[in-house]
Structures are given as C-alpha cells and as structure tokens.
Design a protein around this nucleic acid. Sequence first.
DNA 1: TACTATTTTCAATACTATTTGAAACTTTCG
DNA 2: CGAAAGTTTCAAATAGTATTGAAAATAGTA
Lengths: 166, 166
Amino acid sequence: MDLREARERFIEAWGAFGSAWGINRSMAQVHALLLISHEPLSTEDVMEQLNISRGNANMNMRALIDWSLVRRMVKSGERREFFEAEKDVWKVATHITRERKKRELEPLIRLLDQMEDIPGATADAKSFRKMTHDLHDLTTRLDTLLDHSTRRDVQWFVKAATTLLK
Amino acid sequence: MDLREARERFIEAWGAFGSAWGINRSMAQVHALLLISHEPLSTEDVMEQLNISRGNANMNMRALIDWSLVRRMVKSGERREFFEAEKDVWKVATHITRERKKRELEPLIRLLDQMEDIPGATADAKSFRKMTHDLHDLTTRLDTLLDHSTRRDVQWFVKAATTLLK
DNA sequence: TACTATTTTCAATACTATTTGAAACTTTCG
DNA sequence: CGAAAGTTTCAAATAGTATTGAAAATAGTA
C-alpha cells in the first residue's frame, strides 16, 4: 500500500468510525485529513482533497474548532485562514470525551436524578425505581471517571490501567 | 412527575441517548421499555406501548437479542414469545461495550496495523506514519482495557477507579 | 395434513440528516 | 472608499436511514 492509497483509506475509515459514533462523516473526514497533514490546510485544500463543497468544509471545520480538535492559524503574508489539527492523540481523546460527556452523558444524569423517588407501589413502579437508580449510579461513576481522566493525565491513567490488567 | 410520565420521559431520553451514539431510536426505545418493565413483554405489548409497527418491533427486538441485551422467553401455556431485558446495568454496559468494540474498534485497529511502515520520506509521509502509529497505540490500549473490563469484574474496576480518583 | 397463530421478510414510503451552492456578509488593502 | 479575497449562512436538493404493512414463511396443534 502506498502513501496515497493509505491516506485515502485512513480518511475513509476515520469517517466510518466517526459515523458509527454519531459524528458526521464529513466532520470526521475533515478531521482525518487534518490529522495526517504535516502542515495547516486552507479551506480550498480541504475542499479539493475531500471533494466537498465550501459550505460543508466551512461548517465542519468550525464544528471541529468547537470541539477543540482543530485550531485556526494565520500564515504571515497570507490573507486566508489555515487550519491545523491537534496532533497529540491523547489530547484528541480527551477533547472528544469531554465534549460528548457534556452533550450526552450529563443531560441523561440530570434526568435520572429527577427520577429518583417516583411514587407507586406496583411491581412496575418498583422496577422503574430500581432501574433508574442503578443507571444513575452507573452513569455518575462513569462521569466521575471521565472528569478525572480529563483533569488529570489521561495518558498516565490508561497506561497504568493497561499494564495492571494486561 | 408520576410514573406514567416518568416512564415516557425515560423511554424518550434513552432513545435520544442511543441515537447520539449511533444506535437507532427504536432499538433504544424498545430496550428502554423492556428495561423498566417488571415482566417480559410480547411483540404486541411493545408495538402498542411504543406505537411502532410489527416489523419494526420484530427487527429491533432481534437486534437487541443479537447484542445480548434481551432474551426470548417462553411462558408455559402461551404460544407467543415474550421478551425480557437484562436488568443488571453492569452487564448491560459490558454487553454494549463488547459489541461496539467488536464492530468498530477492532476493524480500525486492524487497519492501523496494516498502516505501520507506509513508505515515503516526505514530511507528509512522516506525519502519516506518526499519526497512525500513535492512534494504533491508543486504540490498542483501549482495546486491552475493554477486553479486561469485559472478562473481569467491571463493577469492581469502575468502583475502584471512581474511589481512587474522587 | 390442514388450519391457525405467530414471526419474519422486504419493497415501498416516510422521515432525517447532510450537502450544496449561491447570496450575503466581513475583512483587508490600495 | 471601493474592489478583491475570503468566510459564513441558509434554503433547497440530495442522500441516507428507519418504518410500515402486507405477504410469505414458520411453527404449533387438532
């Protein structure tokens, strides 16, 4: 496999991986492209290399900036903006985790929290209370875990855990 | 909030949560309904309570069985089949994790594995090799972590980690 | 076996999400 | 200021996914 083919396959795979996890294909592909480019790219570059429209490129680049996965860059003497991905994969993982936690996990926890103490003595009511309580416990633990993984050194933690469990 | 409303809200939220993570709405809603029902439900029950078609109910129930999140049950004297969710939330988490690891993480790792040693001396080639290598390392670690979380006692691990990090 | 209850399949349809592209806007600079 | 270069927006078009519903298949039973 040569570089050209490998790059294409990587972009494709990262796109597919992203969409399985609820991140849209283009956003993941733009991210992939920036990840493997050794220097910042302009909007034009991204449009060309991925065959996508200007609007699409722009929108997804901004979404990536929102997620702290990409930075805007100014090249002196150039008027256009350039975009550059965060290359430290541990930081990438941290940013993605933090963003998703905020968007999806936290609202779920808030809902489950409100659902403690739903009244009723029927079997279904009991079943409901137990399930929401257990889920609350699980998601809260996960939340704490992720909180600390983002505040502290993820790399350290995962490495330690990997070694411990290997 | 009374039980009826809480159940509805929970089903809705679980559905939304699922779709953010690439699991389709109906599948997640069927799962939610079975999770909070104290006894096994028939296809009819599910259709009625969620207002979905027979085909939809059937297809998603089978998908849930595939993920080991739901079991088929036979009630003696009843000809129809009944469905019952795994109620242990730790097991639920384990099954979901294992399934997604198998479907999404493993193929990515296999690809990254093939991408070690792509030839080329350009800056882009170097950049590519570094990124795929780093990602390979990260995903492999994650894979190991998840492997052990499924083989060993997840509950123990997460609880310990939560306490450790709190 | 024939009848009936139940499950499964799948083509058609409905729905949702993504992408485009052109117009509006903003910034830079002579 | 006014033109040029670049960015952003957003309504419309397209593509992708999920759902329906009725027909086919299967399984249980008399």
